[in-house]
Simulated scan of single mutants.
Amino acid sequence: MADGLALHQVGVRFGGLIALDDVSLTVGPGEVVGVIGPNGAGKTTLFNVVCGFATAHTGTLTLDGRPFRPRPHRLTRLGIARTLQGTGLFAGLTVLENVMAGATHTARTGLIPALLGLPRSDRDERRLREHARAVLADLGITEYADAAPDTLPFAVRQRVALARALAARPRLLLLDEPAGGLGADDVDSLAELIRGLPHRASDPCAVLLVEHHMDLVMAVCDRIVVLDFGRVVATGPPEAVREDPAVVDAYLGAALDEAA
Rank of each mutant, 00 (worst) to 15 (best):
G102C: 07
R133W: 04
L197C: 04
T151D: 08
I80G: 10
R171G: 10
H105Q: 11
R164P: 00
G52V: 14
T60K: 15
R82E: 08
E192N: 11
I141N: 06
T87K: 12
P153C: 03
G180A: 15
I112F: 03
L162P: 00
A184M: 06
D122I: 09
R169N: 06
S189G: 07
R127L: 12
V95W: 09
A91M: 05
R71Q: 15
P67C: 04
R164L: 11
R195I: 04
T94K: 07
R66A: 15
P72A: 14
G52W: 11
R69F: 13
L78G: 13
R195E: 02
S121K: 02
D150E: 12
P113E: 04
A184N: 09
G86H: 13
Q85S: 05
T60R: 15
R120D: 05
A148M: 08
E125S: 05
Q158R: 14
G110Q: 04
E97Q: 09
T55D: 12
P170W: 01
L75A: 09
A167E: 11
R159Q: 12
A56F: 14
G117F: 03
G180W: 08
A101C: 13
F154Y: 12
V99K: 07
G117W: 00
F68I: 11
P72L: 15
L63M: 13
A147F: 00
G117H: 01
E192P: 06
P149C: 12
D146V: 07
L152T: 03
T104H: 13
A103P: 06
L75C: 09
R195F: 01
R77F: 01
R129N: 02
L182M: 06
L96P: 01
L84R: 10
L61G: 04
E125P: 00
L116C: 07
V95G: 05
H57K: 15
R169S: 12
L172H: 11
A179D: 02
G102N: 09
R126M: 02
L197V: 03
D188Q: 06
A148W: 05
R169F: 08
A54M: 14
R157W: 03
A114H: 02
T55Y: 13
T58R: 15
D122W: 10
A81Y: 05
L175S: 04
A56P: 14
A132Y: 00
L89C: 10
D124F: 08
L172G: 05
L78Q: 15
V160C: 12
L61S: 04
L115R: 00
E125Y: 09
G52R: 14
A191D: 01
A103S: 11
D185H: 10
F53M: 13
R120L: 06
G92E: 09
V187Y: 02
R195V: 05
L190K: 01
R129D: 03
V187H: 05
E97P: 02
A134S: 12
T151G: 02
T62V: 13
T142M: 08
A167P: 08
H73F: 14
G140Q: 03
G92V: 02
L128K: 03
T62E: 15
L89I: 05
A168Q: 10
V160M: 10
